[in-house]
Amino acid sequence: MKKVRMLTTRMRAKRMLAVLAGVAVLGAAGGCGAGAASSVVGKERLVIGVRPDLPAIGFRKGDGRFEGFDVDVAAYLARKLGATPTFVPALAADRERLLLEGKADLVVATFSITQERKTRVSFAGPYHLSFQDILVRDGTTGIANVRDLAGRKICEVQGSNAAQRVIDERQIPASVVPASTYDQCMAMLKSGRIDAITTNDVILAGLAAREGRGVRLVNTQFNEQRTGVGLRKGDVDGCEAVNRAITDMYQDGTAGMLLRKWFGTSGLTIGTVSVPQFEGCS
């Protein structure tokens, strides 16, 4: 009886050791998996959120493919990281959610870097410096700069903060009219329901180029826009790798070539093309 009890005790001890060993292996594997998933470095495929609704920036064509400046930038960065890009749509209101829910590894979608956004996601870059501008109907008079938006109706796409910045930062008493897409803003502008659209100049230049006539870019520059690459919060290695790729993009002439390719005939002043000062990865 005593011998049987001793054997039973030994068997239980062996089972416990096996369980503990299994837990340790799973824990280690889980830790490695989490680390690999949390960084874009070393991935063979990168899911990248790009705009589907902005001509010349990020636009989804009828065949489902994406094209535009941001799309070309995203493809370049992916190649530099040794990965194959897969693009998914990222409307203004979806950019943070895609990262927070793990549905995108990077977001390259006119994502302006702000301190408030940096509390939830990380940013590499900026990869492009632009300014806020104003788009109006042809024949509109009295709007030559941001101060002239006082008392006017201006459109703001959900997830963007451009119109609100006119009110909060510039102290301009304008009326903000919400929209879900820039196509809705354009429809309201052309119908006269709003007086102007204000956001990044490259976005407005793309819209103006698509329309061809009937609208006009005011070409007033205010509120510098630092457009960055969104990453999951805390991916310092990924941020540094993307910054190196952005540096290469400027130094090898790709950045200037892409800006001229997409905006060279839009009337937008491109200016000097040089490596932007990065925000830093922390």
Rank of each mutant, 00 (worst) to 15 (best):
P173G: 12
V236W: 10
V25E: 05
D237N: 12
K3H: 11
P85E: 01
Q164E: 07
Q184C: 10
V88Y: 09
S122M: 14
H128E: 11
C281V: 08
N219W: 07
V275P: 05
T181R: 01
F222K: 11
A24F: 08
Q164I: 07
G33W: 15
Q225V: 15
V157I: 07
Q115A: 12
A75R: 00
A28N: 02
V50Q: 04
A29R: 00
A92F: 14
E101P: 00
R117Y: 09
T140K: 08
Q251W: 02
A34G: 03
A209N: 02
D148Y: 05
F131K: 11
F87P: 01
G151E: 04
H128I: 15
A255N: 02
N161G: 12
D133G: 02
F69N: 00
D237I: 06
S266C: 07
N223P: 04
E101R: 09
T141K: 13
R51G: 08
G238Q: 07
V19M: 14
T227I: 15
A37L: 15
I113Y: 12
F278S: 12
A144I: 09
V88P: 02
A18M: 14
A245K: 01
R165E: 05
H128C: 10
G238F: 09
A92L: 13
S122R: 07
I143Q: 05
K14I: 15
P126I: 10
T220S: 11
D195K: 10
Y250V: 06
G35M: 15
H128Q: 12
P126G: 04
I194D: 00
A29K: 02
N145P: 00
V202I: 15
V273W: 08
